[in-house]
């Protein structure tokens, strides 16, 4: 009987730069990523009959509350319900996926002490699973659009491109956070506080005009999340194909954050197993 995989050689003296090595390992373990994403989605929806419904009820419920509370305050905003809903859907995807990736890392750390796995596996699969939930949230969004008579234009066909940016942005932030969370578990406690502040500094609930007045709009331009949510609203609500500048700005912000997060994570990844 011939030995399987005999050619597979591991040599710690001949390693590629960590960021590249991790990417190649992740591609080799792509079937694992698929299984992890599948596990996240299947177990979420197996647990309760309302499983899938919760993904939709959650943003809908928040939207209803915001509309009731704020629609009198922001009278200027046109179609406030659709504005809030689009903001909340993108924000929820971002905030939940980053928080969940930290718990996935904590869960995964027991495995990192026992076997070799690409260290980014759990973070990448968590963000991918939340992209699936993001797509599911289009259903309640479509319903609200029907009720409030928002017409959908063909620009929504560009949403897959938008999702590449949302994925990159969320993954970049999640990698930065998870790296720190391995060494300092209290970051898990701390992150929701940062998220709350970040949400109120971003045009999620309050209308865009409000932020344009602050520091001549500087508050918006230094906020990476603005570029993400802005592109989503242009495609879905405004219904036109944005200028090249808008695309370039969103692409730049999300890819730079992804690269920073990836390189930082990979540079520390060897130390994870040392940390008891």
């Amino acid at each position: 009987m011939t030995l399987k995989n005999s050619a597979r050689i591991y040599d710690s003296a001949k390693r590629k730069p960590p960021a590249i090595e991790e990417l190649l390992a992740l591609i080799r373990y792509r079937d694992l990523i698929y299984q992890l994403v599948r596990r996240d989605i299947v177990t979420r929806y197996k647990r309760s009959v309302l499983g899938i419904a919760w993904t939709m009820l959650n943003p809908l419920g928040t939207m209803v509350i915001m509309v009731v509370v704020f629609s009198q305050v922001f009278k200027t905003a046109q179609n406030y319900p659709a504005y809030v809903l689009t903001g909340i859907i993108v924000w929820t995807t971002f905030s939940q996926s980053t928080s969940m990736s930290m718990s996935a890392m904590v869960w995964g750390s027991q495995l990192f002490h026992q076997i070799y796995l690409p260290r980014t596996s759990f973070v990448v699969s968590t963000i991918l699973a939340s992209m699936v939930n993001f797509v599911l949230s289009f259903i309640p969004m479509g319903l609200i659009f029907l009720i409030t008579k928002v017409p959908l234009s063909p620009s929504v066909l560009l949403l897959p491109v938008f999702m590449v940016f949302l994925f990159s942005f969320s993954l970049g932030i999640a990698l930065l956070l998870s790296t720190v969370a391995v060494f300092f578990p209290d970051v898990v406690e701390f992150w929701p506080v940062v998220l709350t502040a970040w949400m109120y500094l971003s045009p999620v609930i309050m209308p865009l005009e409000f932020y344009r007045k602050i520091l001549n709009g500087l508050l918006l331009y230094i906020n990476p999340f603005y570029y993400i949510v802005n592109l989503f609203r242009i495609l879905v609500l405004d219904g036109f194909v944005p200028h090249l500048q808008t695309w370039a700005a969103t692409a730049f912000v999300s890819f730079v954050i992804l690269i920073i997060g990836w390189v930082f994570f990979c540079s520390k990844a060897d130390k994870f197993a040392y940390h008891v």
Partner: peptide, 19 residues
């Protein structure tokens, strides 16, 4: 699982898991 602080480790083939 552990990358050595110093030195070189070289192995050939598939290892049974320590899981």
């Amino acid at each position: 699982v552990l990358v050595p602080t110093k030195g070189r480790v070289w192995t050939k083939g598939y290892l049974s898991p320590l899981l």
